[in-house]
């Protein structure tokens, strides 16, 4: 396999509040390859979005990237660690939009209501490419056509509130691809849309990915979307990546008890009729009341007293591209993370 285009290692992003520190991302590691899709999955509040924002260094205050590295391999082959860059530096800004495009969850509020779609698209184009206004406008129309917006010559002058939710999300995708980035981060791109529109948007992302050999990070809480789209999966729980692996391995041979529980909680047409849907017992702990040891242990069916609640497990390599963070596979250590 080729070298990863983006390699995240031990990323830590903390929020410093009055009441204490919230470790939103607490040691996330994964690799992203050109032309492939990495799905990041987990319950709400597990740090998926913050991870994505940490990569682009747009975490809002009081959040701060504290540790780790985000290695981006650029088009010219050189590698840069985004964590080491100043968040507001020119170099970092060129990465945003230029190298990495970002699609947000809410197409409704992610576009400005006071500017036309064309205005925002042309801004994104001209920010990263030296083109004239007229050229930028042509490119904007071209982008709108590419993402499947009918009558793009007219739509380019409309406002976001004049479009339907599905069209808006297409505009968002066009916007994120305006400067031809090689990586696309899609943060719950279909959550706010209805089911048919969801499928269309996912199809669109896949088509563009094939055309441009894009590396896609797809963040979702929907295992169904993962199964359909992803090549590799990273499962997150309370800011930690607890398991990574190829999509087949994750779905057919999940190793971490959390992944196993997540998969059991998907409704299936093949399930026994009238059987209860499995749920994960308990709920995500309060951010300030983080359990000691393995953060999943209070909800874990394989909880080993004296082991799981004292030390934190490390990542254990189970196959060349399959890792899990669990004492079932790791030898207990004296130290805690």
């Amino acid at each position: 396999m080729a070298d990863p285009i983006l390699s995240v290692r031990g990323l830590e992003t903390f929020f410093h509040g009055d009441e204490g520190i919230v470790r939103a991302v607490d040691g996330a590691s994964f690799d992203l390859f050109p032309g492939r899709t990495l799905g990041i999955v987990g319950e709400s509040g597990c740090g998926k979005s913050v991870t994505a924002r940490s990569i682009l260094r747009i975490v809002e205050r009081p959040g701060r990237v504290e540790n780790g590295s985000v290695l981006l391999r650029r088009a010219d082959g050189s590698t840069v660690d985004l964590v080491k860059l100043d968040a507001s530096s020119r170099e970092m800004r060129e990465v945003r939009g230029g190298e990495i495009g970002y699609v947000f969850q809410e197409p409704m509020s992610s576009l400005s209501a006071y500017h036309t779609i064309g205005n925002q698209l042309m801004e994104a184009i001209r920010l990263h490419r030296t083109v004239t206004k007229a050229e930028a406008r042509d490119r904007a129309i071209e982008l709108l056509r590419m993402v499947g917006i009918p009558r793009p010559e007219q739509r380019v002058d409309s406002y976001s509130f004049e479009l339907s939710g599905g069209l808006r999300q297409r505009v968002m995708i066009a916007l994120s691809l305006a400067a031809e980035p090689r990586i696309l981060i899609a943060d719950e791109p279909t959550t706010a849309l209805d089911v048919t529109t969801q499928a269309q948007i996912l199809e669109l992302i896949r088509r563009i990915q094939e055309e441009r050999n894009l590396a896609v990070v797809l963040i979702t809480h929907d295992m169904g979307v993962i199964a359909e789209m992803a090549d590799a999966v990273a499962v997150m729980y309370l800011g930690k990546v607890v398991e990574t692996g190829p999509v087949d391995a994750i779905f057919h041979a999940p190793k971490h008890p959390y992944t196993q529980s997540l998969l059991r909680s998907i409704p299936s047409v093949l399930a026994q009729p009238l059987s209860r849907l499995a749920t994960i017992t308990g709920s995500i702990p309060h951010p300030f009341a983080r359990p000691a040891g393995c953060p999943f242990h209070p909800r874990c069916p394989s909880f080993m007293p004296g082991t799981c609640d004292t030390g934190a497990p490390g990542l254990t390599r189970l196959a060349p591209d399959h890792e899990a963070r669990c004492f079932l596979y790791d030898q207990p250590r004296e130290t805690s993370a």
Binding site: G17, S44, G45, G47, K48, G63, H221, A289
Partner: peptide, 14 residues
């Protein structure tokens, strides 16, 4: 999904 910091509405202990 928002930043976890905003979810600090209640404290479970008291």
């Amino acid at each position: 999904m928002s930043a976890p910091a905003t979810q600090a509405a209640t404290t479970p202990l008291v």
